[in-house]
C-alpha cells in the first residue's frame, strides 16, 4: 500500500507498515540534530492550511513542514476573517479550496468534519484535529518521539496520565501503542477515565491497558510517562478541579518513584501539570516532541503528494 493521494483522517486509516514507513521517512528528514534541512520534494505544490479554530502549534508545524519541502502554503488561521464567518458551510469552503491547492490540512471544531471534507474534496485531506474525534498527526508525533527517545516503538511500558476521557490524543495514542506491542497503563482522576470503547479497541490489537489511580505504583516500572492537561472547564466545582490538578502534578518528589531515565512527554501547552524543575531531567522530552512535529508532518505530506519519496529509496538502497 501507498499513501499517495490518500486522506489521513484517523490513525486507524494507516496500516502498521505505512506507519513504520512514515516513521522511517520522518527519521531521515529529522537528521542527526533533529533539525530538518530545506528540501525541494514539493517545490511545485500548494498546501492549504484551513484552521477553523486556532491551534498555533499544529498550524505552524504543518506550515513549517510544507515550507521545508519547498511547497507553498495558503490558508487561514482562524475563521474570523473568512467567508465562513459570514455563514458559509464547511462543505462549500472545501469544494472551493480543493481547486486551489494540492492538499488540504483541516482543523475544525466539529466531530467528523475531516471525514466529510475528505468526501467532498478533489484533493487529499489531512486531519489536523476535528473536534473531540481525532488528531492523527499528534499521535504520530508522540509515537515517533517515544521511538526516538527509547530506541524502540515496541515493548515499552507507557503510563498515560490525566484527562483520558476527553483528551482525544491519548485515545489514538493508546491504540497505536497497543498495536505495536507496548504496555499501556491509564492513570486518571475518577470521572476522567479512558472510555471503555478505547480500552476494547486496544485489547483487540494487543494487550488490554491497565487502569488505576495509583500513579506512584504505575511509575515504578514505567519507561514513558505521557502527561495531559486536566481541563478546568470539565469540572463544575473549581475546588474539585484544584484537588485533581494537584494530585497529578509531576515534580521531582513524585519522580523519585520512577527510573532515572524515565521519558516524559506532554503535548503542550502545559499549565502547571509539570513543575519547571523537571525540565532539567534528561528524559524531559516535551520540547523535542514539539520539534518532532515538523519531520513527522514532512513525512506525511511527502508520502501523500509524491510517488516514491526519493529519500526513502536512498535510505533503503
Amino acid at each position: 500500500m501507498t499513501l499517495l493521494d490518500r486522506d489521513v483522517i484517523a490513525v486507524s486509516d494507516l496500516s502498521d507498515d505505512e506507519i513504520q514507513a512514515l516513521l522511517r521517512l520522518a527519521r531521515e528528514f529529522a537528521g542527526p540534530e533533529g533539525r530538518p534541512t530545506p528540501r525541494n520534494e514539493l517545490a511545485d505544490r500548494i498546501v492549504a492550511c484551513l484552521f477553523f479554530e486556532p491551534s498555533t502549534r499544529t498550524r505552524l508545524s504543518f506550515e513549517s513542514a510544507a515550507h521545508r519541502l519547498g511547497a507553498r502554503v495558503i490558508g487561514f488561521s482562524s475563521p474570523a476573517a473568512t467567508s465562513f464567518a459570514k455563514g458559509e458551510t464547511l462543505s462549500d469552503t472545501i469544494r472551493t479550496v480543493s481547486h486551489y491547492a494540492d492538499l488540504i490540512v483541516l482543523r475544525h471544531p466539529k466531530d467528523g468534519s475531516a471525514r466529510l471534507a475528505a468526501e467532498l474534496s478533489e484533493v487529499p485531506v489531512v486531519n489536523a484535529g476535528d473536534g473531540s474525534h481525532s488528531h492523527p498527526t499528534q499521535s504520530l508525533v508522540d509515537f515517533f518521539t517515544i521511538g526516538d527517545e527509547r530506541g524502540t516503538t515496541t515493548n515499552n511500558n507507557v503510563v498515560l496520565l490525566g484527562d483520558l476521557r476527553f483528551g482525544r490524543t491519548t485515545h489514538s495514542l493508546a491504540t497505536l501503542l497497543s498495536r505495536f506491542g507496548n504496555k499501556v497503563t491509564c492513570v486518571s482522576p475518577p470521572g476522567l477515565e479512558m472510555p471503555e470503547g478505547v480500552i476494547e479497541e486496544c485489547a483487540r490489537h494487543g494487550r488490554r491497558p491497565d487502569q488505576t489511580n495509583d500513579l506512584v505504583g504505575a511509575l515504578a516500572d514505567a519507561d514513558v510517562l505521557y502527561v495531559t492537561r486536566i481541563q478546568k472547564e470539565r469540572f463544575a466545582d473549581p475546588a474539585e478541579y484544584l484537588k485533581y490538578a494537584g494530585s497529578y502534578r509531576i515534580d521531582d518528589d513524585i519522580l523519585r518513584h520512577a527510573e532515572a531515565d524515565l521519558t516524559i512527554l506532554h503535548p503542550l501547552p502545559r499549565v502547571g501539570e509539570i513543575d519547571h524543575a523537571v525540565d532539567r531531567r534528561p528524559g524531559a522530552a516535551w520540547f523535542r516532541q514539539a520539534r518532532n512535529g515538523v519531520p513527522v508532518r514532512m513525512a506525511l505530506l511527502t508520502s501523500i503528494l509524491k510517488e516514491t519519496p526519493q529519500i526513502l529509496t536512498e535510505a533503503t538502497r
Partner: peptide
Amino acid sequence: CVTLSEPVASRFQVTSRDPLVIRCDYC
C-alpha cells in the same frame, strides 16, 4: 457531530444487528 450543521445526510454503519448498534460514519 458535523452532520448536524452541514448540508449532508447522516450515514451509519450497522455494527451489530441484535442488539442493534449503529455507528456514525463521520464522528
